[in-house]
């Protein structure tokens, strides 16, 4: 087979990822509740053709629960990382453009947020906001912007010292015009890579918090919930209740992470040699 270059690989993987996401999202909407209703006659079955991921202790089909769980994960991941990335770009730009005290204040805030382990912080925020979807999204969004904000701040500071920015000002262009026309084209690639690499973090944290019981309510079929329920039955030999949903989540995470890494290398060719 002909060797594909990185650009083509990214395109193929991205198309594949978008298809997977669309399917999962459609599954989340289209799968009716009665497919995953409990059926005690059918409980505790190994994976089979009828139930590809087996059934849990209440007789619910794990395959469809996993699909539904993933569609929730994806929704949360996308909303939370999008909010986070927007916060990051706003903070990054305002820090770099604003005054010195603002810069030190926000740098301090970034250090503070990064200093506390994410899981604990999300757990606290989610708990304080009454758990559920809202608590999770706000929790994840308000903790993940830091590192991207730092990258963007650095980039803006570096751009500001470029001669062509100073020349543009002397040609009578306003700060806003320079921000939109000179700076944003340099920042957007960083922004998108940051956004994509943030997504796996967001859904893993969502699963972790739900697993610990501080996220989504137990009646929702999120991956974290499925995993935490399966803990009780693992000792009885029902390995499939934990392994198969967990593996599916890991696959999705790895897929997104891979695309993010490839994109980063495309944008910053120097790091490709590492």
């Amino acid at each position: 087979m002909k060797k594909l270059n990185r650009r083509k690989k990214v395109i193929i993987w991205t198309v594949f990822l978008v298809l997977v996401f669309l399917c999962l999202y459609a599954c989340g909407i289209l799968i009716p509740e009665d497919v995953i209703a409990s059926d005690f006659l059918d409980a505790k079955h190994m994976p089979s053709w009828k139930h590809p991921f087996g059934t849990d202790a209440l007789g619910r089909d794990l395959f469809f629960r996993t699909l539904k769980g993933l569609s929730i994960s994806i929704t949360i991941g996308m909303i939370a990382s999008a909010i986070s990335a927007v916060i990051a770009i706003l903070v990054g730009i305002s820090v770099a453009v604003g005054s010195k005290p603002l810069d030190s204040l926000i740098n301090w805030l970034i250090d503070l947020v990064m200093g506390i382990p994410h899981t604990i912080l999300i757990l606290l925020i989610s708990f304080a906001l009454g758990r559920g979807l809202k608590g999770l999204i706000i929790g994840i969004a308000s903790t993940h912007w830091c590192s991207l904000a730092r990258v963007i701040r650095g980039e803006v500071l570096q751009l500001r010292s470029q001669p062509y920015i100073a020349i543009s000002r002397k040609l009578g262009k306003s700060s806003r015009w320079i921000l939109v026309h000179h700076m944003l084209p340099h920042l957007l690639p960083q922004f998108f890579v940051g956004l994509i690499l943030m997504f796996p973090h967001a859904i893993l944290h969502e699963a972790a918090i739900s697993f610990l019981g501080f996220g989504l309510p137990p009646e929702q079929s999120a991956i974290g919930i499925i995993l935490s329920e399966s803990m009780r039955y693992l000792s009885t030999g029902m390995w499939w209740t934990a392994v198969l949903p967990g593996l599916t989540l890991v696959c999705i995470v790895l897929l997104v992470d891979k695309i993010g890494e490839h994109l980063r290398k495309l944008i910053d060719p120097y790091s490709a040699q590492e």
Binding site: Q162, Y164, K170, L171, S174, P185
Partner: peptide, 21 residues
């Protein structure tokens, strides 16, 4: 401070004075 500056400077290094993108 604002508007087109009546004094224009041409830099020594043109490759740094033009946005590479």
């Amino acid at each position: 401070r604002k508007g087109i500056c009546p004094v224009q400077l041409i830099y020594q290094h043109p490759e740094m004075a033009i946005n590479p993108r």
